[in-house]
């Protein structure tokens, strides 16, 4: 805290004038300043740039012009969110039309119109619309990773179907075996003979 010269260092003096020295450190600095004119001068020199900076008069601001700019910016943000939302909805409709399969068009069409009606009904509530807007913006900003996710999902689906088929076949074979075995057990009434006749089953 004290330099070799016996005076307080600038950091300590700065902390003192900023009211950031506490407890014994503050007391020690105050005691020293009471008797040391060199440190008193340094302290007032340290405070000078700050008090001069506070006297610099700021310009006159046109706050109403800024309010207008912020309001326009917010409207643009909101409109952007809705536009992305609409674009995503339009994209979904186009995909559905292109598919041209009656049952898909039927179900997706119903879903789409229900969604649109829902949105129109909730026009007053910002919460859900905003959520949808944010989701749409997320999809837009991460189109590449969304494609990656889609590819991974397709691969996962194909392997799941394959695995399910394998399990299904094994189950069928096992059931077949039980049927054949029970048939022979019933006919012969002799489990031992069954094992001898069909050791592999």
């Amino acid at each position: 805290m004290k330099r070799e010269s016996g005076h307080l260092d600038a950091e300590t003096l700065g902390a003192y004038i900023d009211g950031e020295l506490h407890g014994p450190a503050r007391q020690a600095a105050a005691d020293h300043l009471r008797v040391c004119s060199v440190c008193r001068e340094t302290a007032s020199a340290l405070g000078a740039p700050g008090s001069a900076a506070r006297q610099v008069q700021a310009p006159e601001w046109n706050v109403e012009a800024l309010v207008a700019r912020v309001e326009a910016g917010i409207s643009a943000l909101e409109a952007e969110g809705e536009a992305v939302n609409d674009a995503v909805a339009a994209g979904r409709r186009r995909t559905v039309e292109r598919a041209g399969v009656a049952r898909w068009t039927g179900s997706a069409g119903r879903e789409g119109s229900a969604g649109r009606e829902g949105l129109a009904g909730r026009e007053g509530s910002a919460g859900l619309g905003d959520l949808a807007g944010r989701a749409a913006r997320w999809v837009k900003s991460r189109r590449r990773s969304a494609l990656g996710f889609a590819a991974a999902a397709v691969i996962l689906l194909v392997s799941l179907v394959g695995a399910a088929g394998y399990v299904y076949r094994r189950e069928m074979i096992a059931q077949d075996r039980v049927l054949v075995d029970s048939h022979y057990i019933i006919r012969s009434g002799n489990a031992g003979a069954l094992l001898v006749s069909y050791p592999g089953r």
């Binding site: 601001w61 706050v63 309001e71 919460g127």
Partner: peptide, 29 residues
């Protein structure tokens, strides 16, 4: 909860102090 008017009032209340700070930090209006 979505009120832009309420937000504009906040802008009106606090912009002067924020502008002064930004002006001191950047040196340009």
């Amino acid at each position: 909860s979505g009120s832009q008017d309420a937000y504009s009032e906040l802008v009106r209340r606090h912009s002067k102090k924020l502008l002064n700070l930004a002006w001191r930090m950047t040196g340009s209006q």
